[in-house]
Design a protein around this nucleic acid. Structure first.
Lengths: 149, 149
DNA sequence: CAAGATTGATGGTTCAATCTTG
DNA sequence: CAAGATTGAACCATCAATCTTG
């Protein structure tokens, strides 16, 4: 376990916290609703397919996905199983490490990822872009970056 | 259904989106983990108890909680049931509207809320305050506010 | 019929235990 | 034993249907 400072938060810190929770909840709701209304799978599928498509011909190990997506190991296991059962990725046995596997996106998976982006992209614009100037968006992402260790 | 603009997001917008998702995920994880490590219930219980304590002697109607906490109606129903079963709130029949109820915090509920804050507050400081100057925290909450309609 | 609220069934997430290989 | 990965059971969230009262 790591060290906790255990001091009380300032009013500005509390406001930033509640804003962060509420803004994310609202934006995520906008995006997930748009996907659902178009009979598309949830956002996490997009994230997985995006990472796999970007990884090239060797695919990715589950533990690499785990790091990228901030998911617990069992979370990767479960979502990968569902996506595989739907035919959008395949598991292959790993040459260099007998404990592991390689996950690769299928052609159908590439198509699905593109279809999802056609809804996802505009939904992000609705949730974020519409409400901020370009300068404000840049400032916001800079500040959020500071919260991510 | 409301109007969708359906334009593509800029790079700055996408960065703000991913930052929002990742920062919230990380901060929430910090807070929920701190609560769990201290054998305390999840954050949503705090939110409910906080609203009820602030509402005074008349308590709140479930649909008021629904609005405050951005929860679906059935979500309120389910979490209120669990908190009631643990003795931290009580349901009373509503005088002025036969369809409804009034939710009121119990003394044990007030104690629990205070105990939760003693962990929750410092965890917010760890997740947010430690990483930002006061000025940055204020700027951040101002920008996040713009995302909330 | 609309609004407030609940509930059975289903699906997803989490915990803890487990299995296999380095 | 540690790291990569899976799984049964329990828990929580969601959908759709339902019930009651305005």
């Amino acid at each position: 376990m790591y060290i906790k400072t255990m001091t009380k938060p300032s009013a500005a810190t509390i406001q930033a916290w509640t804003g962060l929770i509420r803004a994310q909840k609202g934006a995520l709701h906008t995006v997930e609703t748009a996907l659902k209304q178009n009979d598309l799978p949830p956002l996490i599928w997009y994230d997985v397919l995006f990472e796999l498509e970007g990884a090239g011909n060797n695919g990715l190990r589950p533990y690499e996905l785990e790091r990228q997506l901030l998911l617990p190991q069992y979370g990767v296991s479960r979502v990968v199983e569902r996506i595989e059962n739907s035919g959008y990725l395949k598991r292959e046995t790993c040459e260099e490490d007998g404990r592991g596997q390689r996950l690769k996106i299928t052609p159908a998976g590439k198509t699905l990822r593109r279809r999802m982006w056609s809804i996802y992209g505009p939904a992000i614009e609705d949730a974020i872009g519409e409400n901020l100037t370009p300068k404000q968006a840049t400032t916001l992402s800079g500040l959020l970056e500071k919260l991510i260790d």
